[in-house]
Computed example of a mutant assay.
Amino acid sequence: MNLTLIVMQCLNGMQLGVLLFLMAAGLTLVFGIMNFVNLAHGSLYMVGAFIGAFVYNRTGSFLLGLAVLIPAMVAIGMLLETCVLRRLYRRDHLDQVLATFGLILFFNELMRIRWGPSPYYMEVPAALSGTVDLLGMPYPAYRLLIVAAGIAVALGCHLLVHRTRIGMLIRAGATHRTMVGALGVNIALLYALIFALGAVLAGVAGMLAGPILSVQPGMGEPILILTMVVIVIGGIGSIRGAFLGALLVGVIDTLGRTLLPAVLAQLFTRGAADMAGPALASMLIYILMAVVLALRPQGLFPVKHG
């Protein structure tokens, strides 16, 4: 174990963290503002990965893939919200969970019918296939792009929510929906736009993850679980909490899986360390969540209403 390995794994953790933030940003707005439990958010991540990979593999252009993906995810998000989810807003959370779980099954089968059960591969763009000299260490340029893109999106979301008129309406609609509607604001359209924004962020996360993860049916469920952990830690409805919570989860999960087996090997036999290390590492983020809930049940950066 050396400093170079630790720094590299911290960067990998940040890369995972920004992917989680792209997922968590949209989901925390939907949950915190619309009070809607959307388990199908991971499916939007999967759909975005398949659409982006398909366009990229056909055209060879990553930018064209993004250009097609964004309006496609807006259309899918608004169609899903208008035709299906809008009818569930006034139902209790159990109904929302059951309905959106059904959407998970629907989208998984749809992707399996269209692209088959095997992984659908997507190569790293040729221009980003090399490495960048970072503090004297070579680091994959594509992973660095993911980190930069996540930070840019985090800044954009913060400015949107806190510095624009639509952001003001989003925050007002979270606590005073009836009053905002009485002032002439189309709440239904506002909610559809929020859901479309979340769908775009999830789809972009899926496409960015495509070259480093396998694009396949069911890929949305594991990252959805991590995203839920991020939202609980950061505070439901908080963009800042989603960003910092995602970085915490990403770095702790990556460092735990990489370094904990090596640390345990110094204390126990190699066989015992190899068995216990991965199991304990997978528990770290849930231990972190439990500690945060015990000390701050509302999360690290709760949204202040009123």
Rank of each mutant, 00 (worst) to 15 (best):
T82K: 14
G17A: 04
A192Q: 13
G306Q: 05
V251H: 03
L155A: 15
V161D: 14
L213A: 15
A154L: 03
L169Y: 15
I233Y: 11
R114H: 01
V215L: 09
T28I: 09
G256Q: 02
M23Y: 03
G42A: 09
L20K: 01
Y89L: 11
A188E: 11
L183W: 04
R177A: 09
G277N: 04
T164R: 04
E221T: 15
L94E: 11
G52A: 00
P297I: 01
H93T: 13
D253A: 12
I104S: 06
L110E: 02
L183A: 11
G156L: 09
I233M: 07
R165K: 14
L247A: 08
I231L: 00
P217C: 01
L144E: 00
V263P: 08
I212D: 05
A246E: 12
Y45C: 06
V200Q: 03
L213S: 15
V153G: 10
A276L: 13
Y286C: 13
V200M: 01
N57I: 02
M111G: 04
F107D: 06
A141W: 00
Q96G: 10
L267Y: 09
Y139V: 09
G32V: 00
F21E: 01
G52T: 00
N186A: 06
Y121H: 11
H305L: 07
A172H: 09
P302Q: 05
A196F: 08
V215H: 14
R240Y: 08
L94I: 10
M275T: 09
V84Y: 10
I231T: 07
N35A: 12
I170E: 15
G203K: 03
R163Y: 06
L208R: 00
L300W: 01
S129N: 02
P71W: 04
L295G: 12
R112F: 02
M137A: 08
G218R: 11
A182G: 15
G306W: 04
A294I: 08
G218L: 02
V180P: 00
M1Q: 09
A149Y: 01
F54I: 04
T178K: 12
E81S: 11
C10Y: 07
A276Q: 02
A172T: 15
L3N: 13
M111K: 06
V132Y: 05
M122H: 02
M283S: 14
A262T: 12
